[in-house]
Design a protein around this nucleic acid. Structure first.
Length: 575
RNA sequence: CGGAGCGUAGCGCAGUUUGGUAGCGCAUCUGCUUUGGGAGCAGAGGGUCGCCCGUUCAAAUCGGGCCGUUCCGACCA
């Protein structure tokens, strides 16, 4: 493609509203523009990247036995009411009414639509399994869109769905997708890990996430340094050694702690480590209040609590509710005498003699023995794992890293087939519900994640599999007949080799072209200029490592091939 | 939803404190020179200062309301 024919509006400066590298660079490289919050126009170059990603996904999905279809973005509310998600999905579901006053929504995901279709079609176990996917625009009215393509409201997603007759074949579908995802992310050229994950509002029985590792990731991922354990922090279990201590504890008593609302204020005042404190959090689980106890140096894990209480929604109680329940100002809630169901973190079963809030202004309580002084409804794993914990699988040391979720596979079980009555007759003529799975990949998010992982001060460094072009060819002096003749010849030759080339034939100064070439991040640069021609060579550069070389005009084909494979191989070893 | 910031030419910003003719850099257009890492000189075009209401002789500037947008938090597949 000739640059002079292209719409590639590059920018020298980053727009002020871009915060992270991928957002800035996608804008600067002329790959996208913002229309409104969380909604972007994909410009020609950006679209090529999305197409490359989609092509790889399609190939692996097809190879895994899934067929592509395309479902509508506009959906009727009826199906969502039937599944129960019209009430539970929350404000992310963009709802509106059509001219006949019928309630509709924009599809944030398609379990309802596809299950409705399949239940109308499939009657017999002979028709199963059904394995389908689509690549389509989704809309989720996110509370806080941010970081450009990383968390948009409108975004492109590949979503796949499987319907099986029994658990065994459903697990085959799941396994097929898990393996396909491994291949897809390997082929895309991103550094990633699969981790055990929580099912969240999609529901179902178990799931894995595929995480691109990058500091700007919004998720925290836990890895074992010894074994293959890897999990999302939301989900990472804590190994508790169960050291029930029989230490005697003196009777509890109040202690004045004027103005000490926070754990750090209390520890400072009483000169004790924060591990000797019990933090009492009052939460509302689907509107019902409950107390949650974790050690002073720990963080509560909302996902674990939500799963324990089987609640749709868990949040910290607002101050008014808190004050009326504890009869004390914020910061002085405690378990003793608190008339609520109380859930305590596992490790609080062990030691005794804690300091806790006194449910009274400016008062804490010391020598608290939770067994003796409080009514604990249940003990459970309710806190976030941290780097002082050990691997729940092998007991080895763990490390925490940031990740960007680019894929998620779910075993749904009966969640939707039950709600929407997706049933079939088995070989005995018995009616049974289909076992479902669903599998998502954030196509547009991958583009952002890949750039987060692969860029430098000069611009993007595309992994070759998703680069919009394989190569950029710079004609440094379009007014020089000899230079132009050679550049045109190389341009034609590259195309004969089936290389995708962006030919910079613009009447611009060399510096402009060099800067744009680095910014766009195409893997290989070929430079045709008078200096090189005087020595019967053109120059080339590997964008990734910056290595430069020369192609002899007399041996062009062979030299080109050698460089192209060098750039490819150099990339592979760096992933 | 809570907190904070921002909104002035296509982009990046100054001007707002202390009201008085709308500015700078980049980009764009014309001409000349230049031509291997975002050129130089000369000239030109381009803005209802987010919107509405108010105060004032006079509002980008002061007051009120609204809208948009970004960041932090809460939330999230």
């Amino acid at each position: 493609m000739r640059f002079s024919f292209c719409y590639i509006p590059t920018l020298k400066e980053s727009p002020a509203d871009a915060e992270v590298a991928s957002h800035k660079l996608l804008l600067r490289a002329g790959m996208m523009r913002k229309l409104t919050s969380g909604v972007y126009i994909y410009l020609p170059l950006g679209l090529r990247v999305l197409d490359k990603i989609s092509k790889i996904i399609r190939e692996e999905m097809n190879a895994a036995g899934f067929q592509e279809l395309l479902m509508p973005m506009v959906q009727s509310a009826d199906l969502w009411k039937e599944s129960g998600r019209w009430e539970h999905y929350g404000k992310e579901l963009l709802r509106f009414k059509d001219r006949n006053d019928r309630e509709c929504c924009l599809g944030p995901t398609h379990e309802e639509v596809i299950t409705d279709m399949v239940r109308g079609e499939v009657r017999s176990y002979r028709q199963l399994p059904v394995r389908l996917y689509q690549i389509q625009t989704k809309f989720r009215d996110e509370v806080r869109p941010r970081f450009g393509l990383m968390r948009g409201r409108e975004f492109i997603m590949k979503d796949a769905y499987s319907f099986d007759m029994d658990i065994a074949t459903a697990e085959q579908s799941y396994k097929a997708m898990y393996n396909a995802y491994q291949k897809i992310f390997q082929r895309l050229g991103v550094r990633f890990r699969s981790v055990v994950a929580d099912n969240g509002s999609i529901g179902g029985s178990f799931s894995h996430e595929f995480m691109v590792l990058a500091d700007t990731g919004e998720d925290t991922v836990v890895f074992c340094d010894n074994c293959d354990y890897a999990a999302n922090m939301e989900r990472a279990e804590i190994r508790w050694n169960g050291n029930d201590s029989e230490l005697s504890c003196p009777p509890c008593e109040n202690v004045d702690t004027p103005g000490a609302h926070t754990v750090s204020e209390v520890t400072k005042l009483l000169r004790v480590p924060s591990a000797k404190l019990v933090k009492t959090l009052v939460v509302l689980a689907d509107g019902k209040p409950a107390g949650v106890l974790v050690r002073g140096d720990r963080e509560m894990n909302e996902t674990k609590l939500k799963n324990l209480l089987k609640a749709q929604d868990v949040k910290l109680a607002d101050v008014t509710t808190l004050v009326s329940l504890t009869r004390a100002p914020l910061g002085f809630a405690g378990p003793v005498g608190l008339d609520l169901p109380i859930y305590a973190d596992l490790e609080l079963q062990g030691d005794t003699d804690y300091i806790a809030g006194g449910n009274k202004a400016d008062t804490h309580m010391k020598h608290v023995d939770l067994h003796r002084d409080a009514h604990i409804t249940a003990h459970a794993d309710l806190r976030n794992i941290d780097s002082s914990d050990v691997c729940p699988q092998c007991g080895g040391p763990i490390s925490l890293k940031r990740g960007i979720e680019v894929g998620h596979v779910f075993m749904l079980g009966l969640k939707y087939s039950e709600a929407l009555r997706a049933a079939f007759l088995d070989e005995n003529g018995q009616e049974r519900l289909m076992i479902m799975g669903c599998y998502g990949i954030g196509v547009s998010r991958i583009a952002a994640a890949a750039i987060e992982q692969n860029h430098d001060a000069d611009g993007i460094i595309f992994p070759p599999p998703i680069a919009p072009y394989d190569c950029i060819l710079l004609n440094l002096d379009p007014n020089n007949a000899e230079v132009t003749k050679t550049a045109e010849k190389i341009y034609a030759r590259l195309q004969q080799f089936n290389m995708e080339v962006l030919y910079d034939d613009r009447v611009e100064r060399p510096g402009v072209k060099f800067k744009d070439a680095d910014l766009l991040g195409l893997p290989m640069q070929i430079v045709v200029g008078a200096r090189g021609l005087a020595r019967h060579v053109v120059e080339c550069k590997d964008r990734r490592c910056g290595e430069r070389g020369e192609l002899a005009l007399g041996n062009l084909d062979a030299d080109l091939h050698q460089w192209a494979s060098r750039v490819r191989d150099g990339w592979k070893t760096s992933v």
